[in-house]
Structure formats: C-alpha cells, structure tokens
C-alpha cells in the first residue's frame, strides 16, 4: 500500500513540532504504524527522506523500541503484564490461558487477524494487578476467565470498555493518537480507578489533610 499525500504531510507536520526535525522520528513511526499496520520499508524510507537521514538510521531506531512492529499487528494488541508483581498475582496464569485459548505464541497474531498476543513489562498499574493492556488501554484486575471473555468479545466485534478509559479503539487508531493526533476521547472514562483513590478516601474519612498554607 502506498502512503498517501495526507500522511506524508502529517509526517512533515510532526517533524515541524520540534526545534530539530529528527526529534519527530518516534511519533512519525507511530503514524507509519497507524496507516500501514506495522513499520514498513516504505515508511522507513519516507521518514528518512523527510528527516534527511539514512534509511539504516531510521531502521536502527525502529528496531530499538518494542512498540514498533515489523510484522502485521492485529486489530487488537493484547498485552499481558508478566513482570514480577503481575506475574505472581496471576499474570502468568492469564498469559498461559490466552496462549492456549487463542492458539498463538508470544508476539503472534490469530489467524483471523484480530488479536496479537504479547507479554509486556510493568505498565505502571501494579496496584491493579494482574493487568492486561488492549491497544495500550488499561484492563485492570483481570483473571484467566475475564481475560478469555475479553478476547472473545474483541474477536466477536463486541464493544469493550477500558476499566479506566474509553471504548477500545483499533490498534491503528491508537497509534495515531500516539503520533500526536488526538481522537477526541480524552473525556471518556473516570478520572481515577478505585485503587488510585484508596488513600484519599481514608484521608477524607479520618479528616486528614495537608497542613494549612502558612503564607498566603
């Protein structure tokens, strides 16, 4: 698939956000993934051309970061946290269950092209362990059962809502937001999930506060 002119101008627009164009490379590669479904050779060459660097330099960057994929990613990237805390709390069991249920290995995509399964590192949501990310949205406090239901719903095209965010969009749509093009969903979902508020709730119950300001 040829990258169209709109995308080309958006790639230039990203580079123009920075005092030095090359700083745009990471978001530019996110945009390439959003239109191509992965980092393609064409995308690499285009970034190189816009930034005035070699394709090898772009490629060297693309291979360094784990979010960039050279193989096509499904509509839904399902990342199971298997870093220690989540693994112990059940992430390992969830990952094993999903591998069997979807009949894929790590970093593989189901035959229908819907789901790419990967184990991911700590996603800064340990207080919601075990955590599963779908297209980098939080699915907190999962069990093997809930995760199985989750992927079944995604494959069946049912609407799935992040536990701390909006309805799940596609992986390509998510990549576009990461490239710096908002999708208007910032106001969806809660301000905070329950675990984020536990300390605050105790403080309110006890009447605990920070001291009064001593110079107004």
């Amino acid at each position: 698939m040829a990258i169209d002119d709109k995308t080309k101008s958006e790639l230039r627009e990203i580079a123009a956000r920075y005092p030095e164009a090359r700083s745009g490379l990471l978001p530019m590669l996110h945009l390439v993934q959003s239109v191509e479904g992965r980092v393609t050779s064409e995308g690499i060459e285009l970034c190189a051309e816009i930034l005035g660097i070699t394709a090898a330099e772009v490629s060297g960057v693309a291979t360094f970061y784990t979010m960039y994929k050279r193989r096509p990613v499904g509509d839904y990237h399902v990342g199971v946290c298997t870093n220690t805390l989540c693994a112990v709390m059940g992430g390992d069991a969830i990952f094993e269950r999903l591998k069997g249920h979807l009949d894929v290995g790590n970093d593989e995509t189901t035959e229908d092209g819907k789901i790419t399964l990967e184990h991911v590192e700590c996603n800064a949501a340990c207080d919601y362990a075990p955590v599963v990310m779908v297209n980098w949205e939080f699915m907190d406090n999962q069990t093997p059962e809930s995760a199985t239901q989750l992927v079944d719903d995604l494959r069946a095209g049912k609407e799935v809502q992040s536990t701390r965010g909006p309805k799940i969009c596609t992986w390509r749509e998510a990549e576009r937001v990461l490239a710096g093009f908002p999708d208007g969903r910032a106001d969806d979902g809660p301000a905070a999930g329950p675990a984020s508020l536990v300390g605050l709730e105790i403080a309110r119950e006890q009447g605990w506060t920070a001291p009064e300001a001593n110079n107004a």
Binding site: A192, Q206, A210
Partner: peptide, 19 residues
C-alpha cells in the same frame, strides 16, 4: 502533620478532575 496528606491526589476524586 496528619498520617496522610493528600496534595497531589487531593482532587483525583473530583468530578471530571482532568478538565
């Protein structure tokens, strides 16, 4: 000071706190 001192977290429970 009190045992817990919400400052940064103080508004997290507010309605549409992110706006």
């Amino acid at each position: 000071p009190d045992t817990l001192t919400p400052v940064l977290t103080d508004n997290w429970g507010d309605d549409r706190a992110w706006t």
